[in-house]
Write a protein that binds this DNA or RNA. Structure first.
Lengths: 353, 353
DNA sequence: GTGCGTCATGTTTACGTAAACATGACTGCC
DNA sequence: GGCAGTCATGTTTACGTAAACATGACGCAC
């Protein structure tokens, strides 16, 4: 590592020949165009007060040197990064990845980039680590797609002054929350099955740590109680088709079970498989409803009746809410629910058909 | 917008009371701790040359003020952002989202954040726009999960000096490419079916614009030709289960068709449904193989024989390759293939079983 | 006891940008 | 023809950080 020449004296003129300069700055463009860097700045930002001929010279110099603005310097100057951080556990679930996609798309339309901060295994340490990292990250605000109670458990508070929107959580009393209307979706599913004439509905819930799983389960229970129907024992899965299959085998063994509401489509898929293997026909013997309406749900055997979630809308509202905070100042807590819609396909029918 | 006090004179002492200062800087911490900001910097970076008592004072001041380093200033200083950009079309495909997740996780482990740059509809304009945006973005390198020929069509070149790794493309002659070994996966699938005794194998390909679809299709054709088998007409879908269903209906109508290799699992799902509806049993009448081995594939009816892709490994290698470039300088083009593995489940069997 | 090295800490400067202010040329009006 | 006003352009400065260099106190060896 030899350093002979005094730094920065002939740097710009050096560029073409010797070791190339890392990056082209406004000063380089200014030098080539024979103007001041401030004029370059004006051209770069489309500000008025630059005569046409000068502007053209500057533009020519820019493209000759391949000038690109340095966003770090910009951010430093403006105190904003034009970036949104998204903290999440993983993209493996359809819901998460579709929400993130919507967030990214909508944020891009608003001139914001998004930075992904994955928390591998949802341990307290990892959540803590993600938050620490996030604190140092170049973001103007954060969208949390994460179970907030883990946040509580980790006794972490968000750094003060960080704008936050939470997805899929019960933190509506502390943060702005955007979520699918889990309860209403579940109600629609259960009422649909009861409306078909089923005496009651079994429920295959997601993991107890999941807020949305709990919300769906409690709505299910509530509808049954309200209708004066017996509440069958709760089955639990982990969102995976495999866990749905295992639960499905148990449900298939109970001849009284004629209607199943699975907390997501993948578990419903597993249930369909288990019922099929046990010789119970869907929907003739057992009706099955899912939740999410993932792209494949219409191709299951039989095509699945399920609750449609508008992930794109959730993502859009998250971004809007966060940008609102960033531009107009912090907003209070509250929950913004995106409606769901039951999509009836071929996996449900009156009992004993 | 009233501005009375001269900026920056009493700013630090003002903080607790009046309009709060945007952000705590090293200077603020230094003031409170009664040291220079350089000493704060040393403490923040764990550098030696700070006596224990001083260090403690600084740390105390940091936590009292809630100091967080400003990454924009850091980036400006170092000329690096510790961020990787990922340009992609969407997260809707399982492959993309799993690859991105792996990239994010692995990058985080290496101290890098990732910034998502979605290109909505893959038009030339949009690709161009994404590249422009990316050029201004605070990233040290870019991973392209995108069909590179679109890049060519848009006549875009990556800004010089931007480090790049491409996924799923034939650009191995120009860029470093990391990809699943598409061809070998397809070969395994077709040979498995031939090995079971099928006379030939039908193929349901992905869209012609997709490089991996083309690669799988050409491997399929090659294996058949090599084995001297007839090459049935190619069916095409768009990766969706629906398109698989439509193609499946056509295939079901041909009694000669006893073995289908679908270019992904979702289309295979559609094929299964079509065959089922047309009364053709799987695998007794028709064998079906997919590609990807998505989480649900084992729960299809019947559980799907498919080619397993190691998305996590692809993501990991992308990050490694990119960080290698960033730290050790540009590396030449070339293709790094991640092996695939056939997972045999219940959707394949000898013909006429 | 003089001198030099060591070490904690402070001061200066540069990173790239853009707001704020300064300058100087030209225009138009009386 | 002189003066104010307008407008293009240049100069200074600050954003927060950290490398490079500077300072000054102390200790130890001769």
């Amino acid at each position: 590592m030899i350093k002979i020449e005094p730094p920065r004296l002939r740097a710009a003129t050096d560029v073409p020949g010797g070791r190339r300069k890392q990056r082209v700055s406004m000063a380089d463009v200014a030098r080539l165009a024979g103007v001041s860097s401030q004029t370059v700045s004006r051209v770069a930002n489309g500000l008025p007060g630059v005569v046409e001929t000068t502007r053209e010279q500057v533009l020519a110099a820019m493209s000759e040197l391949g000038y690109r603005p340095n966003s770090a310097a910009r951010s430093l100057r403006y105190g904003r990064f034009n970036t949104i951080g998204v903290i999440l556990f993983g993209l493996s679930s359809t819901g998460n990845s579709r929400t993130v996609e919507a967030i990214a798309t909508h944020a891009a339309a608003e001139g914001y980039a998004i930075t992904l901060i994955p928390v591998g295994v949802p341990t307290q340490d990892n959540v803590l680590g993600a938050f620490t990292r996030m604190g140092e990250l170049a973001v103007d605000g954060v969208i949390l797609i994460i179970e907030v109670h883990l946040l509580d458990a980790a006794a972490v508070t968000l750094p003060p002054g960080v704008h936050v929107v939470v997805v899929d959580s019960d933190a509506g009393d502390r943060y702005p929350v955007v979520d699918t209307d889990q309860a209403d979706g579940a109600r629609q599913a259960v009422r649909h099955l009861l409306g078909l004439g089923h005496r009651t509905v079994w429920h295959l819930a997601g993991p107890a740590e999941s807020f949305s799983a709990e919300r769906r389960a409690s709505a299910w229970r509530h509808v049954l109680e309200e209708a004066g129907r017996p509440v069958p024992p709760l089955e639990r899965g982990d969102w995976s088709a495999d866990s749905g299959y295992r639960a499905g085998l148990r449900l298939a063994a109970d001849p009284a079970c004629t209607a199943v509401f699975a907390a997501n489509d993948q578990m419903a898929l597993g249930v369909l498989r288990a019922l099929h293997e046990r010789g119970r026909r869907v929907p003739a013997d057992v009706s099955v409803v899912g939740f999410d309406d993932i792209a494949d749900a219409g191709s299951y055997l039989p095509p699945l009746t399920t609750v449609h979630q508008d992930f794109a809308e959730v993502g859009r509202r998250c971004v809007d809410a966060l940008l609102g905070q960033i531009h107009a100042g912090p907003s209070g807590p509250g929950t913004d629910l995106v409606p769901t819609r039951l999509v009836v396909r071929a996996s449900t029918a009156p009992p004993g058909l």
